[in-house]
Design a protein around this nucleic acid. Structure first.
Length: 203
DNA sequence: GCGACAG
DNA sequence: ATCTTGTCGC
């Protein structure tokens, strides 16, 4: 299957150019899921000032099937990306990178297609398990799946559930965690995804 | 066969 | 993801 083939193209080393812009990517739905709405928000790094926003809507063409999220959401995301004037140096996606049954979640799919470094920032686990994460900002535990470290459960805020970080493309887990922390201020989720989330859901 | 299952 | 107000807790 294409996910297994494409996962071979994921670069698990740091090939990250100096990061001046970080983009948050998220998707929402309208009209009883018949319309897919993708949002991309580009922030200046490290100031996290919003530089540009992009929204794209298109008919939903694929159902939600766990493990195949990118087929449902990426087409609209690519539409939104084409409208951007500023080229992002790094993508922070809602969902998994290689913390996926076939090591090719939406963050990896987006990273490989665009050849831009990407990171998966998920609110819940698709596959894998982890030890208890110390309740301290920045603390993390490896996420294991089939004797392999596929990501990290990261505490971005005390007394809050961890977020699940995994590499998408052209980055290492340690570097990914570092950027996620630097994009997170007072909330559980990075500012990038919070902005994209707001745009994708019309709030 | 029985659960689990990103958004 | 989405349907939805107030409310419990730090």
């Amino acid at each position: 299957m294409i996910q297994e083939t494409m996962s071979g193209r994921v670069l698990k080393q740091d090939h990250v150019d100096p990061v001046r812009t970080v983009a948050g990517v998220d998707v929402g739905f309208e009209e009883r899921n018949t319309i897919t709405r993708a949002a991309v928000v580009v922030l200046h790094f490290p100031s996290l000032v919003v530089l540009e926003e992009s929204v794209a809507r298109r008919p939903t063409s694929f159902p939600y099937v766990p493990g195949f999220l990118s087929f449902r959401e990426l087409p609209a995301v690519l539409d939104a990306l084409q409208q951007l004037v500023v080229k992002p140096d790094l993508f922070l996606c809602d969902g998994q990178g290689i913390a996926h049954p076939r090591r090719f979640g939406i963050a990896s799919h987006l990273g490989v297609l665009t050849n831009v470094p990407s990171v998966g920032v998920a609110k819940s686990i698709l596959v894998g398990k982890h030890g208890e994460v110390p309740d301290k900002r920045g603390a993390w535990q490896p996420l294991w799946h089939r004797e392999e470290i596929v990501g990290a459960a990261l505490c971005t805020r005390v007394k809050t559930r961890p977020v699940y970080i995994s590499i998408g493309h052209r980055i290492t887990l340690e570097t990914a965690i570092e950027y996620v922390m630097r994009c997170t201020t007072k909330y559980r989720l990075p500012e990038t995804t919070r902005h994209a989330d707001k745009l994708a859901s019309n709030r």
